[in-house]
Each structure stands twice: as structure tokens, then as C-alpha cells.
Design a protein around this nucleic acid. Structure first.
Length: 575
RNA sequence: GCACCCGUAGCUCAGCAGGAUAGAGCAUCAGAUUCCUAAUCUGAGGGCCAUGGGUUCGAAUCCCGUCGGGUGCACCA
């Protein structure tokens, strides 16, 4: 149980007691009651708003209520002093012993410090990446991949059961284009001069080996054959090869999905038909005429009658087609069934999407709400675009021209850890620049290095301590002074930060916290520049040295735990 | 036209499910290295939290309007 959770429990007990003696009416809603560190450390270690929140429903005034609460909180062993401040805040200063104990707990729990069970084993399906299987991953996919993966790790860490899933869009027109592109490369592999790759086909070189493999397998028998004879086979083969590539790309980032779900397989299994039947039975799908698109009307637009899902009943602007006039499923029609399927395995769903799909969020949420009858929690997290910069200039990318920057290129250039950390240094819904020069820069405006440097310094202390051989087997933590305990207090916030990040599903909070922690550590370290007696390793004072090393390792542990959540390795020395 | 996202220091961004005097880095200015890695640190200046209302004991945070920026808006995926 984390320190903050523990005090929430203490406070609850106090409020129970006040209910029992009639000071507070029974059954007050305590949802808004919080126990948290005050923004300003001079106010103490913990603050609660309980008196302010509960005064009104209790028919009293905040300060009077605060007096009663304080009387009981002050009696706790762990509380050194209390104060009522401002409009009714209750501030508590804890005894130094609390922080020393917390530091010991941090060591005892080690890698598990920060874990919790707030997820209560609830299964969450996180679908992320789901890039079309038509080529290697490029930088556009990178941020969503990292955020999704970090979020999945984070949710696991707080006690959720997590399914990491990738949806393979292997049923639409794009994979037919892939098949045709592969067919061209197949002919090329058999010696034909295909010239420039025509407009409308994928031009990338990565299809050359696919063509060669197809040539080896089939010989020339499909060279002049009608499309119907080879399309499915070529498509299936090419998609499988593309997925191999994508899995390799993801592995470069340390990302591994549990489930790869195929849209084609879903359709073959008749899932969209089942969903449609159910929705029709509930009058949520009807045959109607699609409204004209908003804004400028396309030249070739004409009204058509299609099966439409009543997404307007769930807040969408218009009803959405689930089938095309050809009778084939729309992307949405299949996706709807796909989400329904996921919701039968998991209690909660999270989709990580690029912000360019923002317009389709409402319809899929509508579909999930309809099909699960509002029972499944379903969040779509939109990830804003990343602008790639080199020497301050945007890097031009065009998928059509085949000159996009691949994920493999970027990871190869700056490394997995830098990519992952950088992608988590911004809120997901804020746009972000990725500047090659800056992300590899070794300075404090690069948080990757700043945090790594702190960890490396801690490791260096361990090495030096081992050389000096002065460390005592059991550290005497009373040697830790105010400056040191301030670091412990910051470290003790890690479990809270993790919880907050998990609840809001914002993994970037871990990155910001680690930066703060590293900053505090660097500050502490540098005190030794001015005052040699404040250094960690003091040759003539094994007791203080041991206590400070114990603290320093504790900070190192937090950095490792935090970096592990982000999927970033902690360095023991800088190069 | 409609929907979604955004608007916080000169710049890039945090702001923890409403809390106390709004924070950090960069940049600017003034300092610290016979010393465990100065790849670091200390200090100073810099704000009408776009704007007008509302809810609340209390709003950068929640709600509505306005202005400004971005993105999306076909049976594409």
C-alpha cells in the first residue's frame, strides 16, 4: 500500500469516527475528498480538502469541521504536526521516521515499488499500431506504437490484465493494390522490363523480394493470367510478408503484440453479418440513402441506397454505411464487428489512432455502445502527428514517391531508447517535433540524456563505493538530513504518479516525473561542489556514506522502474 | 458549413480527474569546477493562463458564447 493510499485510509477512519459520534451525517459522498502533497512544500507533506468538501453537506463551516478532523489526525503516530490553512485545508507534516521507513520500503519492494492493484484484474484490450500491411512501418506509425505499448505496460503494472492487439487491415482495396504491385514485381523477377512503377501501385523496393519469392514458387504461370486467377494468392502471400516486415520493425522498438487479428478472417467467419443481424433486430441498421458529404461536394457524388447504422442516435452527425453498393463491407462495417468481438474477450477497450482518424471516432464509439448495450468502457486515444526535422528543416515524406522515412531508419540512427523516450515527452494530443539533431544531443534540454545521466551517476557511486570498501552492512538512516529526506519525498510520489498516469491513461506523465526526479538528484549531487561534507562518499565517515548510498540507490531504483514502464533501458554509464 | 483537437513566460511545453502565491527547460543576465562524470548546479528577470459570461467556498482546469490556429469531413483505409 502506498503512503498516499495509507493516509487516505487513515482519513477515512477519522471520517467514519466523526460519523459515528454524530459530527458528520452518515453517508456523505467522499468522492471529492483527496489526500495529496501540497503544491508548496512549506505547507507540509500531505494536505486534504476534506473539511472544505464536506462542510456544506454537513451543515457546518470548513474551519470548524477541520478542527474536529485535525484533532484525530494529530493523534496518529506518523503525524508530526498539523495545521489548518486558507479556506480549510488540513496540512500535515509527517515525522522523519515515516520517510526513512518509506525509503526502506522502496528498497524492499525494488522493481515492484509503484505497482498496485487498482486495475483489479480487469481485462483491457489495447489495440495499437494496426498499420496497413502494405509496406514497412514509417515514422508516422512510431508515436502511436510507443504510446500504445507504454500504456499497455502501465496498465499491467497497476493490476490490469492487458491484451496487446494489432488489427490487420487485409480485406480492403489497399491490399488488392498490394497484390497487383507484387504481381508487377513478380513479372520483373522473371526477367520482364517493367519500367517505372505505374501510378496507383506501391513503388517501394521492399516488394522486389516478394516478387522474387512469388516467381520461385509459381514460375511463369501467372504472368499473363487474368487477375482473378492470382489476386487472392498473391494478396495473401504479400500481406504475410508485409506483416513479417512490420513485426521486425516493431521488434526494433521492443514492441510485441499478443494478438494479430485479421480483418479478412473476421469477414470469412461471418462476424460482420452477425453484428448486422443483431443491429437490424434492434432497429439500429436500416436501408437508407446516404447523406451528401458536408462541405464541397465531390464531382461524382450521387445518392445511393445502403445499409446504414444509426450512429446519430449515439451522437454522430450522420448515419454511417456498413456496406458498399458492391455489397462488400465498408471498413466501418467490419471494424464494428471487430470491436464487438474484442469486447467479448475484454472488459475495456482502448484504441490508439492517428489524429487523422479523428472523424471516425464517434461512429465506432456509437457502434460499440450499441453492440455492448453501453456496457464496455471504450476509449479512443488520438495521437497527434510528429513532424520530423533535420537541421531545423522539416523532412519531406511522400508515400507515393516511396521516399518516406522508415521507422527502422530512425531507430537505426538514434536508437530505440531515444525514440521511445522522446515519443513520451509530450501529451499524446499535442503535436510534436522530432528533431534528429536535438534528440541525440547530450545536454539537459534533452530529457533522455538528463535522466540517463542521473542514473549513470548513481551507478558510478556504487562503483566508487565498492572500490572504497567503506560501506556498512546496515545503513543508519538517521544520518539522512533534510536535503536527503526531500529526495525521499519526491521518490515516494512515484506510486502516485503511476496511478495517475494509469487512470488518465497518460504515459507521458512518467517521463515528466522522471525528469523532475533527475533534476532533484542532480541538484543534490551538486551540493557537494560547494560543501565537500555534503558529498555522498566520505572516506572518513562510513555511516553517513552508507546512508547516502542507500538513498542514491533508492532514486536509481525509481528511475529504473519508471524507465521500464516506458520501455527504455537505464544506463550505468554514459559514453 | 459541421465535427474534433489546441490557445499557459520571448520560444518549446508541464500543470497531477477543481485547491493555497501558475511551474520546468531553452533563450537573456549574474554566479559555481584544485571537488564522487560541469553531459551538472545556484540565483535573477520574464504571465490579463486567447477573450466574455456561467457553475463553485475556490476555475488554467468543468459548462456556454466569441476570436485565433490545426486536423478531418465519400461507399477510402
Amino acid at each position: 500500500m502506498s503512503l498516499y493510499t495509507r493516509f487516505t485510509t487513515h482519513l477515512d477512519a477519522v471520517l467514519d469516527a466523526l460519523e459515528a459520534d454524530g459530527t458528520l451525517p452518515a453517508g456523505l459522498n467522499r468522492k471529492a475528498v483527496t489526500v495529496e502533497p501540497p503544491r508548496d512544500a512549506s505547507h507540509g507533506d500531505l494536505a486534504t480538502n476534506a473539511a472544505m468538501v464536506l462542510a456544506k453537506p454537513a451543515g457546518t463551516n470548513p474551519r470548524a469541521l477541520a478542527e474536529k478532523i485535525v484533532a484525530q489526525l494529530a493523534a496518529l503516530d506518523e503525524v508530526q504536526s498539523t495545521a489548518i490553512a486558507g479556506p480549510g485545508f488540513i496540512n500535515m507534516t509527517l515525522t522523519e521516521a515515516v520517510w526513512r521507513t518509506e525509503l526502506s520500503a522502496l528498497h524492499a519492494e525494488g522493481d515492484a515499488y509503484g505497482r498496485s492493484d487498482i486495475g483489479q484484474g480487469v481485462t483491457v484490450n489495447v489495440e495499437y499500431v494496426s498499420a496497413n500491411p502494405t509496406g514497412p512501418m514509417h515514422m508516422g506509425h512510431c508515436r502511436g506504437a510507443v504510446v500504445g505499448d507504454a500504456l499497455a505496460t502501465l496498465l499491467e503494472y497497476v493490476g490490469h490484465k492487458v491484451i496487446r492487439e494489432y488489427y490487420i487491415n487485409d480485406a480492403g482495396g489497399q491490399v488488392d493494390v498490394l497484390a497487383r504491385s507484387a504481381h508487377l514485381r513478380y513479372r520483373e523477377a522473371l526477367g520482364e522490363d517493367v519500367g517505372a512503377i505505374p501510378e496507383g501501385l506501391y513503388p517501394g523496393d521492399y516488394l522486389v523480394p516478394v516478387g522474387q519469392a512469388l516467381a520461385t514458387e509459381h514460375g511463369d504461370r501467372f504472368v499473363g493470367a487474368p487477375e482473378a486467377e492470382w489476386l487472392v494468392a498473391f494478396r495473401t502471400f504479400a500481406v504475410a510478408r508485409m506483416m513479417d516486415m512490420i513485426r521486425d520493425d516493431l521488434a526494433l522498438l521492443g514492441i510485441h503484440h499478443d494478438v494479430f487479428a485479421s480483418e479478412a478472417a473476421l469477414q470469412a467467419a461471418g462476424k460482420p453479418d452477425e453484428a448486422e443481424a443483431w443491429l437490424r433486430a434492434h432497429d439500429l441498421v436500416y436501408d437508407g440513402v446516404l447523406e451528401a458529404p458536408k462541405g464541397e461536394l465531390p464531382d461524382d457524388w450521387e445518392p445511393v441506397k445502403l445499409p446504414l447504422f444509426r450512429s446519430t442516435q449515439f451522437g454522430d452527425d450522420q448515419d454511417r454505411p456498413i456496406k458498399k453498393s458492391s455489397g462488400a463491407w465498408t471498413y466501418f462495417g467490419a471494424d464494428m464487428a471487430y470491436h464487438f468481438q474484442k469486447a467479448q474477450v475484454a472488459d475495456q477497450l482502448i484504441d490508439i489512432w492517428g489524429a487523422d482518424h479523428a472523424g471516425t471516432v464517434k461512429r465506432i464509439q456509437a457502434a460499440v455502445a450499441a453492440l455492448t448495450e453501453g456496457k464496455a468502457r471504450f476509449d479512443v486515444k488520438l495521437i497527434q502527428m510528429v513532424r520530423l526535422l533535420r537541421d531545423g528543416e522539416p523532412v519531406k515524406m511522400s508515400k507515393r514517391a516511396g521516399n518516406f522515412v522508415t521507422l527502422a531508419d530512425v531507430v537505426g540512427e538514434v536508437g530505440k531508447d531515444v525514440v521511445r523516450f522522446t515519443m513520451l515527452t509530450r501529451k499524446a494530443d499535442a503535436q510534436m517535433d522530432f528533431d534528429f539533431a536535438k534528440v541525440v544531443e547530450a545536454s539537459k534540454d534533452n530529457p533522455v540524456f538528463y535522466v540517463q545521466y542521473a542514473h549513470a551517476r548513481i551507478s558510478s557511486l556504487d562503483r566508487r563505493a565498492a572500490e572504497a570498501g567503506i560501506e556498512l552492512p546496515v545503513p543508519d538512516l538517521s544520518r539522512l538530513g533534510t536535503e536527503e529526506l526531500a529526495l525521499v519525498k519526491l521518490a515516494a510520489q512515484f506510486p502516485r504518479v503511476v496511478e495517475g498516469a494509469a487512470l488518465t491513461r497518460e504515459p507521458h506523465r512518467i517521463a515528466f516525473y522522471l525528469n523532475d526526479l533527475a533534476s532533484a538528484f542532480h541538484g543534490w549531487w551538486n551540493v557537494g561542489n560547494d560543501r565537500p561534507e555534503a558529498r555522498v562518499i566520505l572516506a572518513d565517515d562510513p555511516a553517513t556514506t552508507s546512508a547516502r548510498l542507500f538513498l542514491s540507490r533508492g532514486i536509481g531504483q525509481i528511475i529504473r522502474n519508471g524507465l521500464a514502464l516506458m520501455g527504455v533501458a537505464a544506463l550505468t554509464e554514459m559514453q
